[in-house]
Amino acid sequence: MNSLLLRIAARYLSWPLLVVSLWLLYRGHNLPGGGFIGGLLAASAFMLYELSGYGRPQRGFFSISPFFFMPVGLGVAVLSALPGLLGGAFMKGLWLPGFELPLLGKVHLGTPLLFDIGVYLTVIGFILLLADTLNDESS
């Protein structure tokens, strides 16, 4: 990876990609998108950042380990299933009352979104671990 253009571009592309991935994550409940696709995009942001330097960054947001994402993601997904027990059934979707926000319009927050966030984090962790392992093997 010795292309200067690519390295600089990659560094500046990572953050916008992350923002887009969050937007995909949020819109996924009723439109194409969701935790899985958002997670894939976020993982590619991480990998792009990694390619722009020399291997895994040591500091900053992009240095977070896959081993952080996976347990946290799975944990969030499981936790999102539990409030449903109070509302009648395991994994039942519970929603907060909707409210208006600029740019996003009418916002609905609830346990299904929490579940999607769990999927999002797990997918990031898994893809990063996969990429790291392949990277180790080849070098």
Partner: peptide, 12 residues
């Protein structure tokens, strides 16, 4: 054994 078959409907 005491109450018979139990079911759970995921997500209701």
């Amino acid at each position: 054994v005491s109450h018979g078959t139990l079911t759970l409907r995921a997500g209701g």
